[in-house]
């Protein structure tokens, strides 16, 4: 990426800046507007100006959003469920990837294709039957109702990325390990896994991005607040404070904040991960 610097001449820089800035404003202004309105009081909103300068900054909006939006509970649930989903996706996709790519058995190609098929199935078509299944098994309103589909629908991409990265690991390494008396499990977890670091990061980022903001399955399979995730702060709030717009703006800004902050801090890694994941996937 360093050599890129060489080819940035001969273009009128000001024009470049104008184009990029206009697009940036279109992409980011709605969010600035959101934060701005979240700090005003509801009465101030009916202006014709684009932004409001609040007479008094209404931090109380955020206090209400924080408490009545169950922010801490839902954030904790989101982190726990997504963290577990990421760990399981990584472990399962490395194991299955190794078996399908490296080991010798007749059905390896078939099983791999089968598992990758999941990529083509629209998630939302499984909402109705899965609701029935989880209901019958008593899984609704448990953590499993989210973990199982989150892992299952992130697995194909994980498997795809893991197998394509595994190809670049030399077989000689494993041969040496076998000579030393290593078993398959030790080869996978002590030799292969550490070499897959960058693809593990990619899979983790993609899985997190896919599931962090998911709410369709969550609102279908869950009814009590016990395992509800962050998007529910917003979903439940609109009914509760239907006329207090400012507080609704605050809860939206608050729920968006964790992901945006983490993204800005890890910007480089996430960009790289998405780029790698999306181009390969």
């Amino acid at each position: 990426m360093e050599s890129v610097g060489k080819r940035k001449h001969k273009f009128s820089k000001p024009l470049l800046w104008v184009v990029l800035s206009v697009v940036a404003i279109i992409q980011i202004f709605p969010l600035v507007w959101l934060v701005d309105f979240s700090l005003a009081s509801s009465n101030e909103m009916f202006t014709s100006g684009l932004l409001i300068i609040p007479e008094k900054i209404q931090w109380g909006n955020y206090a209400k959003a924080f408490v009545d939006g169950h922010f801490l509970l839902y954030l904790k649930n989101s982190i726990l469920i997504n963290g577990l989903a990421v760990l399981i996706v990584i472990a399962v996709s490395i194991m299955a990837g190794f078996a399908c790519r490296r080991m010798k058995w007749k059905l390896s190609g078939f099983v791999k294709t089968l598992l990758l098929l999941g990529m083509m199935i629209p998630i939302h078509a499984t909402l109705l039957p899965n609701y029935k299944i989880y209901n019958m098994l008593g899984l609704t309103d448990t953590i499993w109702a989210l973990l199982i589909p989150y892992v299952a629908f992130s697995l194909p991409q994980g498997l795809f990325l893991m197998t394509s990265f595994m190809e670049s690991i030399p077989v000689e390494l494993e041969e040496a390990a076998v000579m030393d008396g290593c078993g398959i499990y030790r080869i996978i977890f002590q030799i292969i896994t550490p070499m897959l670091k960058s693809s593990i990061a990619t899979v983790a980022i993609m899985t997190f991005l896919n599931n962090w903001n998911e709410f369709m399955m969550a609102s279908t399979y869950l009814s009590s607040p016990k395992w509800k995730t962050l998007p529910f702060s917003v979903l439940e709030f609109t009914g509760q404070y239907s006329s207090n717009y400012a507080v609704q703006f605050a809860v939206m800004a608050l729920t968006a904040a964790p992901a945006v902050i983490v993204y800005i801090i890890l910007n480089k890694h996430i960009t790289k991960g998405v780029a790698m994941g999306a181009v390969k996937g």
Partner: peptide, 13 residues
């Protein structure tokens, strides 16, 4: 970084 920010925000928001 700016262009990608809307993508990390929940569809609900």
């Amino acid at each position: 970084c700016v262009y990608f920010i809307p993508n990390v925000i929940s569809v609900a928001v």
